[in-house]
Design a protein around this nucleic acid. Structure first.
Length: 803
RNA sequence: GCGGAUAUGGCGGAACUGGCAGACGCGCUAGACUUAGGAUCUAGUGGGAGACCGUGCAGGUUCGAUUCCUGUUAUCCGCACCA
């Protein structure tokens, strides 16, 4: 009896061996393949089987590429700055530097259990001064390029996290991290001018091999729209009010105007009669939280008592205030055409404002409108000189016409806002700026970076809008790098995204003390070929990373402008009934016990077998028995047959090539769950075959190599048992010979009216008439009606159509 | 409200460009080997006694539909007054 499969022994053995003799080596000749995992935040809870999934997927892919002859860059690191780490530290009463270091140690141990190809020599940690030196350096470069600026403005404030948030971090009016309702707070903030890159961020999505879903989310987030700004004079006043519209074709139908309550002119437009109501409306709006404002379905508003003049036809239009107009989009003021806009229609109906139809629907004017006609197609009516034009044409032409007439201009607008970059928290990169009373904002000189985060005892958030760093007077008080006068340091820190926006560049040159990354190394090893992680970063991290990459490209640090060529979003592993795994729900499955009982190889395989990698899957421990049995059966197959020197039959050769073909194709389609079931199926076939006539060594070897990316320890062990002294990962990926896959006979279903009645074996090259004759013979007793038609699809189907 | 995804046995899931629905696995049933087995092996396993019926539901196209078209329902995700 051959040696039984002992996962503990062989996994230990090969891990030690690979440590000594790495299987992935850069010989300078191989092409590189950079396969990256989204690096984890070192949480105190450790990893669960859901985290494993992504890492297994990326490692299988890496090892597959390795077997295809690439040099693999497959690094791992730690996104250790930021709120979660700080909140955890506060909860545990430990300094974040200490708890972070502990968590890294624990998670690194767990990650090593995956036996991934990680090159720990490349490891980065965003809290390491040698790393954040460059995070700060990028900020200084952005400041010098005019992309980082300070601004006092009402920003999103999370009262629970006690810090400002970027727009991207507000989800449904709530904090993306903790779910608390976000309020507004007036604070002086550092901002990054990501809007400067809006067009490029949008256009370059076309270049990317990313899921359409993610591209669409980014497209919507950037939210580009074309239209016109139109200047309206205000009756009896000096001021003009500029509105933004995407439908300048409907200008004749504008019957009122609405300003956001926060609009600079809002209060001043009130007359003595309306002043009280207007002030109250403005005040009430300012008290409403984001959530209330979004949830209030019913439109509210107040008439200012003042009229604007439609510049096109001189009509008097009342100016209203309403919070359905957003202060920070467009100009904060809109012209309202109730006949052709749903929101304006609702508002006009509620407040009895006239509705003037300017586009004919189906060639006609509607008698009593019950809803707005929003399509930009139809002939213009009631539109002065524009009457008779086609609205879709006019929509494009109108901005230029308005521009010529001198009361407006063609414009483009974006939903994307500049990035609020300051956090009023301790655990982040200090923003390397000195505030000098004479020189203003002065960046810390590049040769003085990193600006170290001072060690403190009190790092809890203050909640006042000031960072805890503000209390450390000996750190805050400094001298101006420019004029030498006494000055103060910026006390806000950067958001967690700062480090994660560029970390993937650092992996390829992580020890470089002089540069962020050496240009030659970057040219050779970057960008990332495959990026694997959860879809939750579709907008945040992925948009920021693209922005950073474009900027670093602009200043010549790197020669490419998109960081991640291909993106794969793996689905989440959930507990029973699709409930997200969490400590509080008590449904977390730890990989540690499973690795102990079944081995790393079994768990790797099972992580893939649970379901399609891009979909969420419910975890069920029991299923792992199936893959464990498969490994045992395969192990025994190889061990029992490796020394029997059976000559390959035609059928063995055919099945072998078919297997290589199937597995390779499924792998390339990223259909990893069916790769595993495919292995099981072929294994069953080979076991049957081995019992009857034995099995040839080449087939066993081929399967060992194909399995190597999935169950590396077992494959390596069996490869050596099959008589090789070098690693299985040097074997090269097998190639399928399609000619060797051809079957001489095929099973063909014989149907009557599309219902299968029998199955016959036919020669693959049989002609149609002979095939149909053979098919009819097999179902002779059922051929009772009039045969109307006979169909033969070679190798698949014979269909006899009867009446 | 808008946009996207999903829907197949007791369960997870297969099915290439329309061509034998339920591969593979879990679970279950029976048997074998065993002192014993939650170990292993063998056989079976969508429903129905049957002709037949079966891929969320209702239609359509086709010799033939899980696959294509129209409508519809449910669940999940994203966006949500962006003028």
């Amino acid at each position: 009896m051959a040696i039984p499969y002992n996962h503990r022994e062989i996994e230990q053995k090969w891990r030690a061996e690979w440590e000594k003799n790495p299987v992935n080596v850069d010989d300078g000749k191989k092409e590189k393949y950079y396969c990256l995992d989204m690096f984890p935040y070192p949480s105190g809870n450790g990893l669960h089987v859901g985290h494993w999934r992504g890492y297994v997927i990326s490692d299988v892919w890496s090892r597959y590429k390795l077997l295809n002859g690439y040099y693999i860059i497959h690094p791992m690191g730690w996104d250790a700055f930021g709120l979660p780490a700080e909140n955890y530290a506060i909860k545990m009463g430990v300094h974040p530097a200490i708890s972070t270091a502990q968590n890294v140690t624990n998670i690194k141990r767990q990650i090593n259990e995956i036996a991934a190809l990680y090159d720990w020599d490349r490891e980065v940690n965003t809290t390491d001064p040698n790393f954040y030196k460059w995070t700060q350096w990028i900020f200084v470069k952005m400041f010098k390029a005019g992309l980082a600026y300070e601004k006092e403005m009402p920003i999103n404030w999370c009262p629970s996290c006690k810090t400002g948030l970027a727009n991207e971090e507000v989800v449904d009016g709530k904090c993306e991290r903790c779910g608390s309702e976000v309020t507004k707070k007036n604070l002086k903030q550092w901002m990054l001018r990501i809007t400067e890159y809006a067009d490029r961020l949008l256009a370059d999505l076309d270049k990317l091999d990313w899921p359409e879903k993610v591209k669409k989310m980014q497209t919507d987030w950037i939210g580009k729209s074309h239209g016109a700004e139109v200047d309206f004079a205000v009756e009896n006043r000096e001021e003009k009010i500029t509105v933004y519209t995407t439908r300048p074709d409907t200008l004749h139908g504008a019957t009122f105007m609405v300003l956001a309550p926060e609009h600079a002119l809002a209060a001043s437009l009130a007359t003595s009669e309306t002043k009280e109501a207007v002030d109250k409306y403005i005040f009430d709006s300012s008290m409403k939280s984001n959530v209330d404002r979004l949830q209030g379905k019913e439109k509210t508003g107040v008439f200012t008592g003042t009229y604007a003049i439609n510049p096109l036809n001189g009509a008097k239009v009342p100016i209203w205030l309403s919070d359905y107009v957003l202060a920070d989009y467009g100009t904060g003021a809109i012209m309202c055409v109730p006949a052709h806009d749903d929101r304006d229609f609702e508002f006009a109906t509620k407040f009895n404002i006239p509705i003037i139809q300017v586009i004919a629907k189906d060639g006609e004017e509607i008698e009593n409108m019950t809803e707005a006609y929003t399509a930009a197609s139809g002939i213009m009516i009631n539109s002065g000189e524009w009457t008779g034009m086609e609205s879709s044409v006019l929509k494009k032409e109108a901005p230029k016409m308005i521009e010529k007439m001198g009361f407006g201009r063609e414009t483009t607008n974006y939903k994307l806002r500049d990035w609020v970059f300051s956090r009023q928290r301790y655990w982040g990169e200090p923003i390397p700026i000195v505030h000098c009373p004479k020189c203003g904002c002065v960046p810390v000189p590049e040769d003085q970076l990193p600006l170290l985060l001072p060690e403190v005892e009190k790092y809890q958030p203050t909640g006042t809008g000031e960072s805890p760093l503000a209390d450390i007077t000996e750190w805050v008080n400094t001298t101006c790098p420019c004029c030498g006068a006494p000055a103060k340091r910026e006390t806000n820190t950067m958001p967690q995204w700062a480090g994660s926006s560029w970390y993937f560049l650092r992996y390829v040159d992580s020890h470089n003390e002089k540069e962020l990354v050496n240009r030659e190394v970057a040219d050779k090893l970057l960008p990332v070929d495959m990026y694997i992680g959860g879809v939750e970063h579709a907008v945040l991290h992925l948009l920021y990373s693209r922005f950073y990459t474009k900027f670093l490209n602009d200043i010549g640090v790197i020669d490419f402008d998109e960081p991640f060529k291909k993106l794969f979003n793996q689905g989440m592993i959930t507990g029973k009934n699709g409930i997200k795994m969490s400590k509080s729900k008590g449904n977390v499955v730890s990989p540690d016990d499973l690795v102990r009982d079944y081995g790393c190889d079994s768990l790797r395989l099972y992580e893939l077998f649970v379901g399609p990698p891009e979909l969420d899957s419910e975890w069920d421990d029991r299923g792992i028995d199936g893959v464990y049995r498969f490994i045992n059966r395969f192990w025994n197959l190889v061990m029992d047959n490796k020394d029997k020197s059976v000559a390959a039959t035609a059928e063995m050769v055919r099945l072998r090539h078919k297997m290589v073909y199937d597995i390779t194709q499924r792998l390339n389609n990223f259909s990893l769950n069916t790769v595993v079931s495919g292995f099981m199926e072929y294994n069953n076939k080979f076991i049957d075959m081995a019992k009857k006539e034995g099995i040839d060594k080449e087939t066993l070897e081929t399967m060992v190599v194909l399995l190597a990316p999935f169950i590396p320890h077992v494959s390596e062990e069996l490869w050596r048992e099959l008589g090789h002294d070098n690693t299985v990962f040097a074997a090269g990926w097998p190639e399928a010979d399609e000619n060797a896959m051809v079957e001489t006979e095929k099973e063909v279903a014989v149907q009557i009216n599309g219902k299968t009645k029998a199955v016959v074996r036919l020669a693959a090259d049989i002609d149609k008439d002979a095939a149909i004759a053979a098919g009819k013979e097999a179902i002779a007793d059922k051929l009772t009606g009039n045969v109307v038609k006979e169909i033969y699809v070679p190798g698949r189907i014979i269909n006899i159509v009867m009446k």
